Amino acid sequence: MIFFGYTIGEWTEVISIIGVGVSAGSWLFKKIALDPLRSDIQMLSDTINRQLKLHEQSLADLNAHLKTHDDELGSHSVRITRLEDHIGIKGEDNHED
């Protein structure tokens, strides 16, 4: 049987050659472009995750430091109020002009 001037065997050969060429091209593209890209993306992801952990730790440290300052500020406010009461000074809220 002849189709467009070629036999079924010849069409099979052409299709097989094209298939092998496409497969080889696909494999080469994967090895040359995709594998290095995947490797770079993985390294970038690992770096971002490390940075995120460092920033989370810094934020936790900053929050602890802020809580310490808030506690000290509250303590100072109480102590100042007690001193004002002890020596008879009116607070700024009760100050008359």
Results as ranks from 00 to 15, higher is better:
I2S: 12
F3M: 10
F3L: 12
F3S: 08
F4K: 03
T7G: 11
I8W: 02
G9H: 04
G9S: 09
G9F: 01
G9M: 01
E10I: 08
W11R: 03
E13L: 08
E13Y: 02
V14E: 14
S16D: 07
S16P: 00
S16V: 03
I18P: 01
I18V: 12
I18E: 15
G19C: 00
G19P: 01
V20H: 05
S23W: 10
G25E: 03
G25P: 05
G25L: 04
S26T: 13
W27S: 11
L28I: 11
K31N: 06
I32D: 04
A33Q: 07
D35V: 10
D35E: 06
P36H: 05
P36A: 09
L37S: 15
L37D: 08
R38K: 14
S39L: 15
S39D: 11
S39V: 02
D40T: 03
D40V: 02
D40L: 13
D40P: 01
I41D: 08
Q42K: 12
Q42L: 09
Q42H: 06
M43R: 14
M43V: 11
L44V: 02
L44K: 05
D46H: 02
D46M: 03
N49C: 03
N49D: 13
R50P: 01
L52S: 12
L54N: 07
H55V: 13
H55G: 02
H55N: 00
E56G: 12
A60E: 06
D61N: 15
L66Q: 14
K67E: 10
H69F: 12
H69Y: 12
D71A: 13
G74K: 05
G74M: 05
S77R: 15
V78K: 12
R79M: 15
R79N: 10
I80Q: 13
I80L: 11
E84K: 08
H86D: 15
G88Q: 01
G88D: 04
G91F: 00
E92N: 13
E92I: 10
E92K: 03
E92G: 04
E96R: 15
D97S: 06
